[in-house]
Write a protein that binds this DNA or RNA. Sequence first.
DNA 1: ACGCGAACATACTCGGCAGTATGTCCTCGC
DNA 2: GCGAGGACATACTGCCGAGTATGTTCGCGT
Lengths: 213, 213
Amino acid sequence: MPADMQATAANDLVSPDRREEVLAAAAECFMRRGYEATSMDDVADALGATKGRVYHHFRSKPELFFEVFRRAIFILIREAGVHETGPGHAADRLRRMARAHILCMMETQAFQRNLTLGVDLYRFGETSAEHKATLEDLMNLRRGYEDAFRRTFAAGAADGSMKALDPSLAMRTLLGAINWVAVWYSPRPGETRAHREKLAEEIVVQVLGGYLA
Amino acid sequence: MPADMQATAANDLVSPDRREEVLAAAAECFMRRGYEATSMDDVADALGATKGRVYHHFRSKPELFFEVFRRAIFILIREAGVHETGPGHAADRLRRMARAHILCMMETQAFQRNLTLGVDLYRFGETSAEHKATLEDLMNLRRGYEDAFRRTFAAGAADGSMKALDPSLAMRTLLGAINWVAVWYSPRPGETRAHREKLAEEIVVQVLGGYLA
DNA sequence: ACGCGAACATACTCGGCAGTATGTCCTCGC
DNA sequence: GCGAGGACATACTGCCGAGTATGTTCGCGT
């Protein structure tokens, strides 16, 4: 019934970010079933809509995924990356970065899981030149974010707040541990922000212990 | 040309584990493109064969994947899990387990990556009762392997060789860090076993540092 | 009050992929 | 030397999913 649907849409006032809803639904679907297994109809169903709506906002399935990916990195940079330039020793800054990163994994899980998927798509996927280029951009964004951790490890060795380890390797093991949160974490019913912050704190203590001076 | 192919097959003597080749090719393909994106023809192509061969050894695509998954866990249990019962403090045993685990990630990467894929398939996939049951079995195997780490963390708190942290959380952060190796690691040309062992050792030192007493 | 475009829905096409049915060859036991 | 079965290849079918073409409705500017 098109008439019903249109009426409903009309009730949503000016609909500021109907596009955003599609993006969130896509992130959820991609996380649950994976990129290839998710059909555009799946995304539409999750919205109680049809493909028409999805294709109205996004040109193709790859571009939809790219937007999810981009959003995921932007969130990480905004929430965690900013702490690179902050007060205190490198160890303190790294603590804040890791803490924020973990909270992102828990609270925007659907988007963050797709970050890992995207990396695989980049390494092995056979995409057409057009997409290859935008994928390259996205990978650079990701690399830039990782570099913030690498630099902070190096800074920690310099200011004496952390052990002098290979910064690249340290970055990888640290990010591995905290990225993995998005894999196993699933929110308890009735869980509050305070709970998540406490959990994040615990993880930070365990994970960073090995790098401190 | 069937004649040619058959002749070639004949040259392979009694073909002890032609099935094994299919399994390895499948693991490689699943890792590269993901489960859904991989077609049975892809697997066949990787072997220079056709679907006929694949379906001769495996009933269906899910069962093929399950076998890859099962193989991955068996390798981990055989190489790393066995060190749970060994000499020394819990910290020493955990070190050996982690070290072996990391080496598995590097040397049987194709199989190990699919372990992660399988977990997602389990959590969200819509499989028919038959498959759901075998998936359940596989998950129990995996859980059992993880429990070895959990128990060793608890043992470490008991024998004083490690900090008294939540063993479940510690297991997750540790496995996260070392599972991630399979994500970023890619073998350098001309790399020897010795190189990998050194790298594994470095990772173990960094990662376990936070848990030691 | 009217036309225009945004925001969808509906109804198709068409290629690719899982699975099957059947044929072919080689080997091994007898 | 011959019949049976293992180990594939070839040739299909049927469906599912990406993308497209074409309505349809509503709000908005004029």
